[in-house]
């Protein structure tokens, strides 16, 4: 088995397109769950709405920046729609409604017609939209593939990665500024105890709504980088459905909720980890160490989900503060 190439590809994933868009989406989810305590299990819905908003706009000749703006506006509307009925209620209602709404969004994107209106013309139905990313690719300043001493990217990936990580850094700066402010303090207070915040004159409903919108915007940005990177947007679950939401959750919890760099580091580690287990398992299989009756090629792809589920459980039960937990927080018995 070629450990060298496995290692190289794993390291590549640390900094790859996936890590970057995961990080963006995870920053959004961290605002929701980590800082505000909102149980958003429909993050893929925000990603899908951002992605489709962008793709449909580009497809119809809208300039790139305006298309991004349209995607962000659509995500804002989605957040308001989700928040209005749920944010006054107990936290778990938001979980139910978000997971359902994300699924609704995906079904609607996949549909061919909605109430007599032919939507496939815009969304491409179950085939999605392909090849809309040219306005983005045209801006690519790289002339060929990029090889640094530890990573290498194709020309296209290099450009997506550059833009993606630049956005991640800007987002981290933004979150840093927001969370050190009194606004961030109210957010965290609502996470700790909403009623206490209300008793001190803080409008918990409004602040939760702001958080839902803001985090959703980062989710939408993540979705955009994702579909720009593969220049195709598809309404499949693994692309923009519930499994994607759960991936982002694991990334956030892995890195540590409510921590500035948590979602970024969590995304990098998780992306690399997925790649590493995949490659190792496939390697073992080719070597015959894992017999095919036990695990075939298709099953290898499923192992990542099994590990993700197990990881989510174990992390939440034993290290809810993430793998780099703060000792003070650990001692606190916060659950």
């Amino acid at each position: 088995m070629d450990w060298g190439s496995i290692l190289a590809e794993t390291v590549n994933k640390f900094f790859g397109v996936q890590a970057a868009y995961f990080a963006l989406a995870a920053i959004g989810l961290n605002i929701h769950f980590g800082y505000t305590g909102l149980l958003n299990f429909g993050h893929a819905g925000f990603m899908a709405i951002g992605a489709y908003g962008l793709a449909i706009s580009l497809q119809n000749g809208v300039p790139l920046l305006l298309a991004v703006l349209i995607g962000l506006l659509a995500a804002t509307a989605f957040a308001l729609l989700l928040g209005a009925p749920t944010l006054r209620l107990r936290a778990d209602y938001l979980a139910i409604v978000t997971i359902a709404a994300a699924e609704i969004a995906r079904i609607l994107f996949r549909a061919t017609e909605i109430a007599g209106f032919n939507t496939r013309e815009y969304t491409g139905g179950s085939t999605g939209i392909n090849g809309f990313a040219d306005p983005f690719k045209d801006l690519n300043p790289y002339t060929g593939s990029v090889d640094l001493w530890f990573v290498s990217f194709s020309r296209n990936d290099a450009w997506t990665v550059t833009v993606g990580w630049a956005l991640v850094l800007l987002s981290v700066l933004f979150v840093h500024l927001a969370m050190r402010s009194p606004w961030g303090r109210v957010l965290k207070a609502v996470r700790e105890d909403e009623d206490a915040a209300r008793a001190l004159g803080k409008n918990a409903y409004s602040i939760k709504m702001q958080s839902l919108v803001l985090g959703g915007l980062f989710g939408a940005l993540g979705g955009m980088i994702f579909v720009l990177g593969q220049s195709s947007v598809q309404p499949t679950p693994q692309d923009l459905g519930a499994p994607k939401t759960f991936f982002i959750w694991v990334a956030v919890i892995l890195g540590g909720t409510g921590k500035l760099w948590g979602p970024v580091i969590g995304s990098m580690i998780f992306s690399a980890l997925l790649q590493f287990t995949d490659l190792t398992l496939r390697g073992f299989q080719e070597e015959g160490i894992i017999p095919t009756w036990f695990m075939d090629g298709v099953q290898v792809g499923q192992v990542r989900f099994i590990l993700m589920g197990l990881g989510l459980m174990l992390l939440m039960a034993f290290r809810p503060q993430g793998i780099f937990g703060d000792k003070r927080e650990l001692a606190l018995d916060v659950r």
């Binding site: 149980l39 959750w249 919890i253 989900f305 099994i306 993700m308 989510l312 459980m313 659950r335």
Partner: peptide, 25 residues
């Protein structure tokens, strides 16, 4: 152990993924 309801909710989601993909496997 005194786990909070939110932690348990997230754990149930992990369990759901784990069980679902084990069945698929």
């Amino acid at each position: 152990r005194g786990s909070g309801l939110i932690a348990m909710l997230v754990i149930s989601i992990g369990l759901s993924i784990l069980a679902r993909y084990l069945v698929l496997y």
